[in-house]
C-alpha cells in the first residue's frame, strides 16, 4: 500500500458517496447512466468473487464489500424510488434495440460486455473460471464509464455533483497509474501488464472530460461540451 493507491481508493470511495448524496439530496437520478452503474455492479461482483476464497487484508475486504453494496444500492434506487427521473432516452447506446435488426440485446451487451468477455478468454492470468471473470472485470471496468460519458455528450452539460462523480472516478484511475509506476520501482516482482494496459485505456477515456471540466473550473463557467 502506498499513498497513491490509498488516495485513489479514497477518491473511489468518495465517488460513490457523492453520487448517493446527490441522488438523495435531489431525489433524482437525472443525468446518471443506469447502464454504467449496472456495468460497475457486474465488474465488482465478478472481481470480488474472491471474497469467498482469498483474503488479502481487512482493508481490501471492507472496501470490496462497500463497493458492491454501494453500487447495488445506486442501481436499486435508480430502478425503484428514483426511476421516474431516469433519463432513459439519453442513456441509449448506438445500436440499442436494433442488434442485428431484431434481437433484443442492447448495445451495451453487443458492444461492451461480449467483447470484454471474449478478450478475457484470450488474455487472462490463468485459464480458470475465476481468473477469466477477473480479467473480464478488469476489461469491463475500463469501458464501463462509456455510457455515462455518452450520456454527458448527448446532454452537453452535467449537473455539478454528476461531474464531481465522474471527476472522482477518473482521478482514482489516474492515481492508480502513479501507484503502478511507484510499485514497479519499489517492488521486486511487481508485474501486471494486463492491468496496466486496461488501466491506461480506462484513464485515457477520461482525458476529454478532464479537459473540459478543468476549463469550466478555471473560468468559473458552466461545464459545456463542444459540438
Amino acid at each position: 500500500m502506498n499513498i497513491f493507491r490509498l488516495s485513489g481508493d479514497m477518491l473511489h470511495l468518495i465517488s460513490f458517496l457523492v453520487l448517493m448524496y446527490r441522488m438523495r439530496g435531489q431525489r433524482s437520478c437525472r443525468g446518471v447512466s443506469l447502464k454504467s452503474q449496472i456495468l460497475f455492479l457486474i465488474v465488482f461482483c465478478c472481481r470480488y468473487l474472491d471474497l469467498f476464497f482469498s483474503f488479502v487484508s481487512l482493508y481490501n475486504t471492507m472496501m470490496k464489500i462497500f463497493f458492491i453494496s454501494a453500487t447495488a444500492t445506486i442501481v436499486y434506487w435508480m430502478l425503484t424510488k428514483y426511476r421516474s427521473s431516469y433519463d432513459m432516452d439519453n442513456d441509449k447506446l448506438h445500436g440499442d434495440g436494433s442488434f442485428m435488426g431484431h434481437l433484443p440485446p442492447h448495445g451495451v451487451l453487443g458492444y461492451i460486455i461480449v467483447p470484454c468477455f471474449l478478450l478475457a478468454l484470450i488474455w487472462n492470468e490463468g485459464f480458470e473460471a475465476f481468473e477469466i471473470l477477473w480479467a473480464f472485470s478488469i476489461y469491463l471496468e475500463a469501458v464501463a464509464i462509456l455510457p455515462q460519458l455518452f450520456m454527458l455528450q448527448k446532454t452537453k452539460e452535467g449537473e455539478a455533483f454528476t461531474l464531481l462523480y465522474i471527476f472522482c472516478v477518473g482521478a482514482y484511475r489516474g492515481l492508480y497509474i502513479i501507484n503502478w509506476i511507484y510499485r514497479y520501482f519499489t517492488e521486486k516482482h511487481y508485474w501486471q501488464p494486463l492491468v496496466w494496459v486496461s488501466g491506461v485505456v480506462q484513464t485515457l477515456l477520461y482525458a476529454d472530460f478532464f479537459y473540459y471540466y478543468w476549463i469550466a473550473l478555471r473560468d468559473g463557467a458552466k461545464f459545456q461540451l463542444p459540438g
Binding site: R47, V56, W134
Partner: peptide
C-alpha cells in the same frame, strides 16, 4: 505467468 503479485488491488 508470474503470479507473485496476485490480485492485491481493488
Amino acid at each position: 505467468t508470474d503470479k507473485l503479485t496476485g490480485h492485491d488491488e481493488l
